[in-house]
């Protein structure tokens, strides 16, 4: 293994809900600049894994660290660690009482206490990058689903996170909007943003990923490069999963 800087290290992670292990011993690391795509059947624990990574869920065993610092649910300094982890969820979760610009500017102003002028300029630049310059003063209710998700990406990016966690951010979108959002993510991937992505868009996974991690039953079943994974999956379970996938389309 060449010397690589790990951003996230997950060791022996176990997470139970009401006694049932949803994550049952997962080891996973994400290096700087790497794009890791998590795939797996519905309910296999992908969202739970991401939620454990930024401390939204308490964990039952194992460790999650960001640059060696442990991420612990409800710990005092968790908010400091979270600034370095950007997260975008499946549901549109912009703050409805704030304009697009204020949605983006809130965290850098209140959390990082950067100067307003500087943040504003950066927010506008990010909006331009995702093609939404004209929506700065709109409220979330005036945006389409695809536009909301692009704004949500900007809202995370402005914090200069070390890693972005994207949880099926196109799953609730109408098909014609999926593209505009994935284009933005692909652009980030090409520019070296470290990301851990959960998606059901296989073509996108193939295009964006440096590494595919296939999860089933709370464990990592297979981990390989995208070309290999999609053309010659090693495990039966992965084969089966990919098959049902193509049939379901």
């Amino acid at each position: 293994m060449p010397e690589t800087e790990h951003i996230i290290d997950i060791n022996g992670l176990v997470k139970r809900f009401n006694g049932t292990a949803v994550i049952d011993g997962i080891d996973l690391s994400v290096s700087k600049g790497e794009v890791v795509v998590l795939i797996g059947p519905s309910g296999c624990g992908k969202s739970t894994l991401l939620r454990c990574i930024n401390g939204l869920e308490p964990i039952d065993a194992g460790t999650v660290t960001l640059h060696g610092e442990p991420v612990v649910h409800n710990s005092r300094n968790l908010y400091k660690i979270r600034q370095k982890i950007g997260m975008v969820f499946q549901s549109y979760d912009l703050f409805p009482h704030l304009t697009v610009l204020k949605n983006i500017m809130l965290a850098p102003m209140k959390v990082q206490k950067r100067s307003k002028e500087e943040i504003r300029a950066e927010a506008l630049k990010l909006l331009e990058r995702v093609g939404l310059s004209d929506k700065a003063e709109s409220f979330p209710s005036e945006l389409s689903g695809g536009q909301k998700q692009r704004v949500a990406i900007c809202r995370s990016l402005i914090m200069n996170p070390e890693i972005m966690l994207l949880d099926e951010i196109t799953a609730a979108l109408d098909p014609e909007m999926v593209h505009e959002v994935l284009d933005v993510v692909l652009d980030l991937a090409k520019n070296g943003t470290t990301m851990l992505i959960v998606t059901h868009e296989m073509a996108f996974a193939k295009a964006a990923a440096d590494r595919i991690v296939f999860i089933d039953g709370g464990v990592i079943v297979e981990e390989s490069e995208p070309d290999e994974f999609f053309t010659a999956p090693k495990t039966e379970r992965a084969k089966k999963f990919l098959k049902t996938f193509t049939y379901s389309r």
Partner: peptide
């Protein structure tokens, strides 16, 4: 106020107190 609003605020690095003040309170008040 949906649970996701609070989680989004926390994910951005806001403290619990800040997420109440800037996100949950204003929406509840409306």
């Amino acid at each position: 106020v949906p649970k996701h609003q609070r989680e989004s605020a926390l994910s951005l690095g806001l403290t619990k107190f800040q997420s109440y003040v800037y996100i949950i309170f204003p929406q509840a008040l409306r």
